[in-house]
Design a protein around this nucleic acid. Structure first.
Lengths: 342, 342
DNA sequence: ATCTCAAATGCAAGCGCTTACATCGACGGA
DNA sequence: TCCGTCGATGTAAGCGCTTGCATTTGAGAT
């Protein structure tokens, strides 16, 4: 009790157990290299002193942190939560720790966070979407930190990715909307600048229109942030026009729910007066009233696969294999045949 | 290009700029100690080499990381998202980086994550709720890492906290329910073991019943995980009894939304046949149909205040001052007077 | 008892950075 | 002109750990 009660170091443990620091280190990291008797003594010392290794020192010496970093655009809604949870569970199974930070959909912040995570010794990174400055990818390469892109799969992308084909998924949904009888279709999209997921989703809708002989240029598209309020505002905007759309395809469920809320508030009947669709199939989609027709994304599966692949890349087991996850359109009440007189 | 293209170090920059490592370090950390001419030269070298400081080394040498860690029970829903976002923004303003990890409501995992964050050199920690092993608090003290408890304020708690009084908030809500005419009240609570927030919320309801001459022991309480499905199951369970409650108070909005979903599925009218209330006032509460009567928690304010206080503690400016945030009952359609014949 | 050879352990050199202290140099005052 | 000062810069000692290599130990073989 005479000593200052500050965090004990490897050295303290070594002294306490009467061995060298090397032995203590081996006890902690490669126990089977140490004979049982010694090991027990060391572990007891560890216990008695309440020792915890200093990570910074360990990372520095070992050049390995068993930490994976993830930068997601936002924690403000459930879009990324579920997939990330699965990602984390899978990492834990392999002894990795996950560190998350959010970029608020801002490229600058994302860049900063990536640097922070790399500087902190992350062995690998999970990134959302493909689009970002080349500089960042070069930086990662230079630091030899493998990165895995998720939530998006682009057939011709450089980066390894585990995600889904946003364009195809949206195409399928739009086809459904068209098949249901809609011709005057509008869209509420997320901000497309720097966001390939948002871009390709819009593209998917356009392609579907084109494929069905509808002029994609005539489609009204409002771009806005992925927030409930934004969805509501966009909805109001779209419905204030002379020729109202009969269906509004939203870039994700959050926007769609915002639209639904505004519809209810202003007494617009969904789906009688206008159909609304979402994307992601988060819990909100089923809870919403009317329940949302949307694109179901198997987030958990994606998270799990992403973790497995990223770990393989970190271990050098894999050079990076992309996976395209299948999505599926889910029919619920928010989409219906347009009124004939519309 | 002859050299191996691996991450440049301080030393490389120093050589490149023709100065010592000390000077480079000073340029980066305390620029005004370096004369402009030198500084420019150094910064240019930094730029040319694409240098990023190695965090582990920096933390080790400086014993300061400008990193704050937060361990939240789950990222799976919006309960913590909003407050955390505000927390992060405020930290950024002061030059701190936030690292988040989730414990999935499991004490063991939380403990592990706390150690991971501390070992990683976190200057301070944000913890949710007061209740955890003493050992953890001792560990933090030993490592001299200040911790701030949020989402809960307990008048007589040891730990510094910035949160709200869960008992009082729930008391007020329950009083409202009683005032609305309900007598047969049931509750769907989160798991109370190791969770003081869940515990005190139940206590709040019990106290309100008591205060109104209703025997709290007669109240049916179902404990379950904080998931939509769990809420739904609990609702079914409660409504399958002979004497159905006229009001169900839920431990949070997620459980309440689950109850609402089950009600809709089974054709139970809310609030006509049974009233339902939530807690937190996340977006879901307003979206739900019928919209939820709930307790509004000013999450952003809490996050901001928590960040400010924690930074003060880290800087040694404050020894830790607790703040109790005011909550407010929000009336929406899910709560109404019980049918007279009930 | 002696020798052999793994297995177990110790030694010590870093990992990349910060910082106390030493040194250098320029400028102003005597 | 010389010295004192003070600001700018360099020197080098760690920070706590891992790990290649050297050394010691002990069990089995002779």
């Amino acid at each position: 009790m005479g000593k200052t009660r500050s965090a004990p170091t490897l050295n303290d443990v070594a002294n306490h157990a009467g061995v060298s620091t090397a032995t203590v280190s081996r006890c902690l990291n490669t126990p089977n290299q140490v004979v049982e008797k010694t090991r027990v003594r060391v572990m007891q010392a560890v216990e008695e002193l309440g020792y915890t290794p200093n990570f910074a020192a360990r990372v520095m010496a070992a050049k390995r942190s068993f930490t994976i970093g993830a930068i997601i655009p936002t924690m403000d809604n459930a879009i990324f939560a579920r997939g990330l949870q699965a990602f984390q569970s899978e990492l834990r199974r392999s002894g990795y720790t996950l560190l998350v930070s959010s970029s608020e959909y801002k490229p600058d912040i994302e860049k900063e966070q990536i640097r922070a995570l790399v500087a902190r010794g992350a062995d690998g990174l999970l990134l959302i979407g493909h689009e970002r400055e080349d500089e960042i990818y070069e930086y990662l390469k230079r630091h030899q930190v493998p990165a895995l892109v998720a939530w998006s799969y682009l057939p011709d992308a450089r980066q390894t990715s585990v995600g889904f084909n946003n364009r195809d998924a949206m195409f399928e949904l739009a086809q459904n909307v068209i098949d249901t009888g809609h011709r005057r279709i509008a869209m509420i999209s997320g901000v497309t600048a720097g966001n390939d997921r948002a871009q390709t989703r819009v593209q998917g809708v356009r392609d579907a229109l084109q494929a069905n002989g509808i002029d994609p240029c005539k489609m009204r598209v409002i771009e806005t942030t992925y927030e409930i309020d934004s969805g509501a505002n966009a909805f109001r905007e779209l419905m204030s026009r002379d020729l109202r759309p009969t269906a509004i395809i939203c870039g994700n469920d959050v926007l769609a729910v915002g639209a639904l809320r505004e519809a209810r508030r202003t007494g617009v009947a969904v789906p009688d007066e206008v159909s609304v669709t979402g994307f992601d199939d988060i819990e909100l989609a089923e809870i919403a009233n009317p329940a949302l027709t949307t694109v179901h994304v198997p987030h958990r599966e994606m998270g799990r696969k992403a973790a497995q692949e990223l770990i393989a890349m970190v271990n050098g087991t894999s050079k990076g294999v992309s996976t395209c996850i299948k999505t599926q359109v889910v029919h619920r009440q928010s989409l219906a045949r347009p009124q004939t007189d519309a």
